[in-house]
């Protein structure tokens, strides 16, 4: 009896979580009239031409162009943040050095620092040195381990590895970097993957930073392109096209999540608790 109640509640929540997404996919095949009259997500018929239209967009560039732009940011950014976060986390987790407490506090402060607060001074900073409307402000900060959350997760993982492992490798004559790359890194591979996945998802979702740093349509990311299409189309016209664009925009995140899902749900939680 108790079990059945739990299942009913879980199913209800699941409906609340998934139905909007199902509805979104269905609505991309519907006419305006159908969108506003039927709650059922299944469209009356499937006409895939809407996706061809959506792919073309009305911004002058195709969605393919915006995909390439977005990945031009994501790939270096992911690489940078994995390398810099691993090095920094390694330093914090395994070594003692002057001002350690101070820098660790700074790491926490950085984690708690609202993006909207830092974004104004950073705008002026990049403006001053002439990097506005390039991808530099979007990728460069990742070189400097600025995602406190990633460093924090990695530190927790390093602390989970017995120190004897380091010592053994040291006795074999390996230096600190050597130990990191050949001994410790294989042990924290899952954490590194989750940092990369999170970085991917966050960059995919990021809206504030591209909004502020990028001006020319040619350099827009997917999210900015979506925004422009909504603004220039307006409610009431071709709703299905905008919805289809949104669906396309969600595909990369859903794919990456589906691939990495098993690995990273548990891990991120482990790092935080």
């Amino acid at each position: 009896m108790k079990k059945i109640t739990i299942y009913i509640i879980l199913v209800l929540i699941a409906v609340f979580m998934l139905y909007p997404l199902l509805w979104l996919v269905g609505a991309s095949f519907k006419t305006n009239q159908e969108i506003y009259s039927s709650m059922w997500f299944m469209p009356m018929d499937f006409d895939f031409s809407v996706y061809f239209n959506a792919w073309k967009t009305n911004t002058g560039y195709s969605m393919g162009h915006y995909f390439i732009n977005t990945f031009t940011i994501i790939i270096p950014k992911t690489l940078f943040s994995v390398i810099s976060s691993v090095l920094t986390a390694y330093g914090f987790a395994r070594f003692d050095f002057p001002l350690k407490k101070f820098f660790f506090t700074l790491l926490m402060v950085g984690m708690f620092m609202p993006a909207i607060v830092t974004v104004m001074p950073m705008y002026m900073f990049w403006h001053e040195i002439g990097f506005l409307d390039t991808y530099v402000p979007l990728t460069m900060p990742s070189l400097f381990a600025c995602e406190g959350m990633f460093v924090f997760i990695l530190i927790q993982f390093f602390k989970g590895i017995p120190k004897e492992l380091d010592e053994a490798s040291r006795l074999d004559g390996c230096g600190s970097l050597h130990t990191l790359v050949y001994v410790l890194l294989p042990c924290i591979k899952p954490a590194v993957i989750s940092v990369a996945v999170f970085n991917f998802l966050w960059t995919m979702n990021d809206f504030i930073n591209p909004l502020i740093f990028i001006n020319s349509t040619e350099k827009y990311t997917l999210s900015l392109a979506l925004r422009t299409s909504v603004d220039s189309t307006g409610q009431g016209y071709e709703e299905c096209k905008i919805i289809a664009m949104s669906v396309i925009g969600l595909i990369p995140s859903v794919t990456v999540f589906a691939l990495a899902q098993k690995k990273f749900i548990g891990i991120t939680a482990g790092g935080l608790s």
Binding site: S84, L87, T88, Y90, G91, F92, R94, F95, D96, F97, P98, L99, K100, F103, L106, L107, V109, G110, M113, V117, T118, M120, P121, M122, F125, P141, L143, F144, A145, C146, V151, S176
Partner: peptide, 22 residues
Amino acid sequence: KFTGLLLISPFIIGSILFIIYP
């Protein structure tokens, strides 16, 4: 004692540029 500092040097630069400076 400088090995640790060297390892976190990206973060030291980063924290000056992206935390203290803003």
